[in-house]
Amino acid sequence: MHPRRRSIRSIALGLIAAALGAPAALALAADEAIDVTEGGEAIVLLHEGDLENWTVFVDPRTEPYSPESSTEGIFTVEDGVLHVTGERFACLTTTDAYQNYRLVLEFKWGETRWPPRAEAKRDSGVLLHCVGPDRIWTKSIECQIQEGDCGDFYMVGGTSLTVGGKAQTGGRFVKTTDAEKPNGEWNTIEVVCDGDRIVNIVNGTVVNEGTASSETAGRILLQSEGAEVFYRNVKLLPLDR
């Protein structure tokens, strides 16, 4: 069980969204987010054989599409490993919002790529502090997961961040160094979210650090963007202060 239950209002939002057939509930406000450090316990987000803590959204503009088959097979979990086929532009988003945590996960690239990115860099992403309705690029701060670009910041949906003394709304901040392992090997991504500060760490190397984030709490999202990718050991840890 999470260290702090969601508020009655947040549960009501989810029930309303489900009743209306919405793809997912609206994001929880910052004052409703689970404070992982305050709770003092690790939260395992990816369990052995299910996606209990996640909602699925598939971009209806990608083919083939029907309400009955929109989520089938894109995200599957076996022996604690999440397999993302990448065939459709889609995303997994946590049902709860979080703040003040160290996100730790491992990923590795698969072999398959799909149009329109069959010849492009393999691409995915971890979107932090997601607010608003589910989209492939929900309003958030993204820690980029892409071949050669792991740890870049993207300010999605009008969010802002300050990196190296430069404040910016939207766009990208490139990582300071490339710490990604060769394709096929597992990489460890850590993202420290401490108030309005975000630090991206790739395989133990700090590659990007931002402050004055316009968002400080929200849901967490994993993307399917035309490339096969695997995730495992996805968890949130309290900050060591």
Rank of each mutant, 00 (worst) to 15 (best):
V84N: 01
V84C: 11
E87G: 00
R88S: 08
F89G: 00
F89L: 08
F89W: 12
F89E: 07
C91R: 11
T93C: 03
T93H: 04
T94P: 11
T94E: 02
T94N: 05
T95V: 13
D96C: 08
D96R: 12
A97L: 07
Y98F: 15
R102F: 08
R102C: 13
L103C: 05
V104M: 07
V104Y: 04
L105Q: 09
E106A: 02
F107I: 03
K108L: 01
K108G: 01
W109R: 02
G110V: 03
G110E: 03
E111S: 11
E111L: 05
T112P: 00
R113V: 12
P115R: 10
P116Q: 09
P116R: 12
R117M: 11
A118E: 15
A118L: 01
E119D: 14
A120S: 14
A120T: 09
R122G: 00
R122C: 01
D123Q: 05
G125A: 11
V126T: 11
V126I: 15
L128V: 06
H129S: 02
C130H: 07
P133V: 09
P133T: 07
D134S: 14
R135F: 13
R135P: 00
W137T: 10
T138L: 00
S140T: 06
S140A: 15
I141C: 07
C143F: 07
C143M: 14
Q144G: 00
I145E: 00
I145P: 02
G148P: 11
G148K: 06
G148D: 08
D149F: 14
C150L: 13
C150T: 14
C150Y: 03
D152N: 15
F153T: 04
Y154S: 04
M155P: 01
M155G: 01
T159H: 06
V163T: 13
V163Y: 11
G164Q: 10
G164P: 13
A167I: 00
A167T: 15
G170T: 08
F173V: 05
T177H: 09
D178Q: 12
D178Y: 04
A179E: 05
A179W: 09
E180H: 03
E180F: 05
E180I: 09
K181E: 05
P182S: 09
E185F: 11
W186F: 04
N187M: 12
I189E: 12
V192P: 01
D194R: 15
D194F: 10
G195H: 12
D196L: 02
R197E: 11
I198N: 07
V199Y: 06
V199S: 10
N200Y: 09
I201A: 02
